[in-house]
């Protein structure tokens, strides 16, 4: 086995656009679930709206790249309202069911032939990079060292993504240390009690759904920035990867989603390199290299179960929180 190549490929995931995109979405989910107790199982839908909002505004409407990002964010705000108005008055479980269905509806709308002219249906969208790349402040050429060597465009996507992530993390930190965050955490614990204290619970839940949804859309934008918008990406399993990341890092923390995304992608990158290599060198005698590459998804599922059972507060979560089992 070529360990050098395996480790180098693994290390490159540390600051890949995928890692940044997933971290942004997981941060949004932290606002939803970790702080607000909203069971959103439709993060893939928010991400799809961000990615398609960005690509369609550029390709169909000829908007500049930054306006495309704003359109993606606005689309997620509208989606949050559509989801929230009927369901946020109901119990948390209903939101879970509605969001998972709504995210699928969003994906199917983007995939259907009806809007082929705009969405290019199942083939997805590409070639919208011109504006974003023209705004690249880095001169042409290849920079970096070791596994982190990219051309100017590669660096521009990564640094722009990391910038968004820093702003988002800062916003979450500011919100959650404030009285607004206190109300939101109170709602997570018991919304009737918060209602009895004179807080408009519905408005707070709506605000949280929007804030988290916008972060999800930004994740979708960052995911779309370097390559293309592929509809088959925004399936339910994407939502569950985001959940794995959130629970791995710690749901009610600011840095948990970031750490979770890095760990998730580094492990995924490592396994996708090492498992086929093991299979081809005969260490996994009962499976082919293709089967070995798929094995990582099974391991991710297993990891999610183990986290939830043995460390439900995540890596960065407060240990004390574990002491008290919620009723």
């Amino acid at each position: 086995m070529d360990w050098e190549a395996i480790l180098s490929n693994t290390a490159s995931w540390l600051i890949s656009p995928e890692t940044i995109a997933y971290a942004l979405a997981a941060l949004g989910l932290a606002v939803h679930f970790g702080y607000g107790g909203l069971l959103n199982f439709g993060m893939a839908g928010f991400m799809a709206l961000g990615a398609y909002g960005y690509a369609i505004s550029i390709l169909t409407f000829g908007l500049p790249w930054w306006a495309g990002i704003i359109v993606g964010m606005l689309a997620s705000v509208v989606f949050a309202f559509i989801l929230g108005i009927p369901t946020l008055r109901l119990r948390a479980d209903y939101l879970a069911i509605v969001t998972i269905a709504a995210a699928e509806i969003v994906r199917l709308l983007f995939t259907t032939q009806v809007f082929d002219e705009v969405t290019n249906s199942a083939d997805g969208l590409g070639n919208y990079h011109e504006g974003f790349r023209a705004a690249n402040p880095f001169p042409e050429g290849t920079y970096g060292f070791g596994p982190w060597e990219y051309n100017a465009n590669g660096w521009w996507v990564r640094i722009f993504g990391i910038g968004l992530l820093i702003v988002a993390a800062l916003l979450v930190w500011l919100l959650m240390r404030s009285p607004w965050g206190r109300v939101l955490k109170g709602i997570r614990e018991d919304e009737d009690a918060v209602r009895a204290l004179g807080k408009n619970v519905f408005a707070y839940k709506m605000q949280a759904l929007i804030v988290g949804g916008v972060f999800g859309a930004l994740g979708g934008v960052v995911f779309a920035l370097p390559s293309a918008v592929v509809p088959s990406v925004y399936v339910t399993s994407l939502t569950f990867f985001i959940w794995t990341i959130l629970l791995l890092g710690g749901a009610a923390t600011v840095f948990g989603p970031l750490l979770g995304a890095v760990i998730f992608w580094v492990i995924m990158g490592f396994l996708s390199n090492v498992l086929p290599a093991m299979a081809s060198s005969g260490l996994l005698p009962f499976m082919s290299t293709t089967q070995a590459a798929t094995l990582r998804f099974i391991l991710v599922g297993l990891a999610l179960m183990l986290i939830v059972i043995f460390r439900p507060q995540g890596i960065l979560g407060n240990k004390k929180e574990l002491t008290f089992v919620k009723q």
Binding site: L174, L175, S178, P179, W180, G181, R182, V183, K185, G186, R188, E189, D190, A193, V194, L197, G198, K199, Q207, V211, A252, E321, F324, K326
Partner: peptide, 25 residues
């Protein structure tokens, strides 16, 4: 509110808090 501290529980009871507005917060 179990996973809020006692003091946070208390502060939540106060009315007309500027910091409970999302933008002001």
């Amino acid at each position: 509110l179990g996973l809020l501290t006692v003091l946070e529980n208390m502060k939540l009871g106060a009315q007309k808090q500027t910091g409970e507005n999302m933008f002001a917060s």
